[in-house]
């Protein structure tokens, strides 16, 4: 057996070990409420006493704002109750051309405490994508609008490949 095969097998075993190590923490396949699709738990909690009434009346609780600011998160600007014990919080757009606020946090009452979750970017794409970009295909909206800079990079990659192959292979013409 050649040395390369042995190195290859060793590397494969190493990687397999890595995958077996992490498999327990991989989010379940097809779960519609997985962090990438719905909510990320932020591990911020405040006591429900007092805060709950404020949330129900649509006010922004100071305790929550403080807890969020301690972790560099933006303060919410508007609270809206979804179901009993769950609230959506919106934040200011921050840009000049949209008037509406956007959905950002989800507060959930769990026991005596209020847990803070954050919506994944995808939720925003799916809810507001059509309205903001006039494009029904969200992937097109993402690649040429929300993440257009990536696509500029991607086009540059193709261009680089084209010129590189000309640099390597072409021995005719002007280039």
């Amino acid at each position: 057996m050649k040395a390369e095969s042995i190195i290859g097998l060793l590397m494969v075993i190493l990687l397999t070990g890595l995958f077996f190590y992490i498999v327990e923490d991989v989010p379940p396949y097809g779960d519609p409420s997985s962090p990438a699709l719905q909510l990320v738990r932020l591990d911020i909690r405040v006591d429900a006493a007092g805060v709950e009434e404020e949330l129900n009346s649509g006010m922004i609780p100071a305790a929550l704002v403080e807890a969020l600011a301690a972790r560099n998160f933006v303060a919410p600007s508007e609270i809206e109750e979804v179901t009993a014990g769950e609230w959506d919080a919106k934040i200011d757009k921050g840009e000049f051309y949209y008037e509406e606020d956007e959905k950002y946090y989800r507060f959930k009452k769990e026991g005596n405490q209020i847990e803070v979750y954050r919506y994944a970017p995808v939720v925003r794409y799916l809810e507001k994508g059509l309205e903001e970009t006039d494009v029904p295909n969200i992937v097109t909206a993402v690649i040429v609008d929300y993440r257009a800079y990536d696509t500029l990079g991607e086009t540059t990659v193709i261009f680089t490949a084209g010129i590189s192959v000309i640099l390597l292979l072409r021995r005719r013409g002007k280039l």
């Binding site: 991989v26 962090p35 990320v40 591990d43 560099n72 994944a120 970017p121």
Partner: peptide
């Protein structure tokens, strides 16, 4: 897959 975000500053806030 665990954070749902790709931005560096955002990840730094979500990860702890």
């Amino acid at each position: 897959s665990v954070t749902g975000s790709l931005n560096m500053a955002d990840l730094a806030a979500i990860l702890p």
